[in-house]
């Protein structure tokens, strides 16, 4: 049964080592997609290079399908694994702020670190900015503590539970939406002129 750390007595060092291995693959595939380059990422928002959309939704449907199947056959216990909590208001406002930061800075935090690891000077500025943004957040936290917990839809609320639709149907709908997004991405790159990084 999985997750491994939940069903076996493993040392903390073993868990840390597994996290390190996962991290290596994480960094490898982000870099291989070209996500160390901020302009390549930012061109997403001008429909001139939609690698982000294609890679992101391929990753979602791949992991989602694996998780649904392993959970269904009793191999992976999702009922005790981490599900992100649903605090709507900070999630919406935080998401919009992140989107603005993405378009202005060209990186998200993970890809910014990939940029630093591959010597991109602009990425160093971005990661330092990110750390500063977090410092600002923790220092103003006492003032926004109530907002931070606003709109709690549940600590483990999922799309199937919220809409009372089976997991299989939700999964299938997301796969169809992803395929439509891939088709639209290929179309947009042709229409608006695909640009590589610069």
């Amino acid at each position: 049964m999985f997750p491994l750390t939940y069903f076996h007595e493993l040392s903390l060092n073993t868990e840390y080592f597994m996290a390190f291995i996962v991290g290596i693959f994480f960094g490898f595939f982000l870099e291989q997609a070209g996500f160390g380059n901020a302009r390549r990422l930012a061109l997403t928002f001008y429909l001139k290079n939609l690698t982000v959309v294609k890679a992101f939704f391929t990753a979602i449907i791949t992991a989602m399908t694996g998780i649904i199947l392993l959970d269904h056959f009793g191999i992976l216990a999702m009922d005790i694994s981490w599900i992100n909590p649903s605090y709507m208001w900070p999630g919406i406002v935080g998401g919009l702020i992140m989107g603005a930061g993405f378009a202005i800075g060209g990186y998200c935090p993970g890809t910014g670190i990939v940029g630093v690891a591959t010597f991109k000077i602009d990425a160093i500025f971005n990661v330092l900015g990110g750390l500063l943004g977090m410092l600002i957040f923790v220092e103003v936290f006492p003032l926004i503590e109530n907002f931070y917990s606003a709109g709690n839809f549940g600590e483990r609320m999922t799309l199937p539970e919220f809409f009372s639709i089976s997991v299989g149907i939700v999964g299938a709908a997301i796969i169809v939406m992803a395929l439509a997004a891939f088709w639209a991405s290929e179309w947009a790159e042709k229409k608006f002129g695909k640009e590589e990084e610069g």
Partner: peptide, 16 residues
Amino acid sequence: SVIGGVLFGFGARLAR
């Protein structure tokens, strides 16, 4: 790049 980073860092903490 710094401005974008600050916004992303702040937003990411707000959105958990």
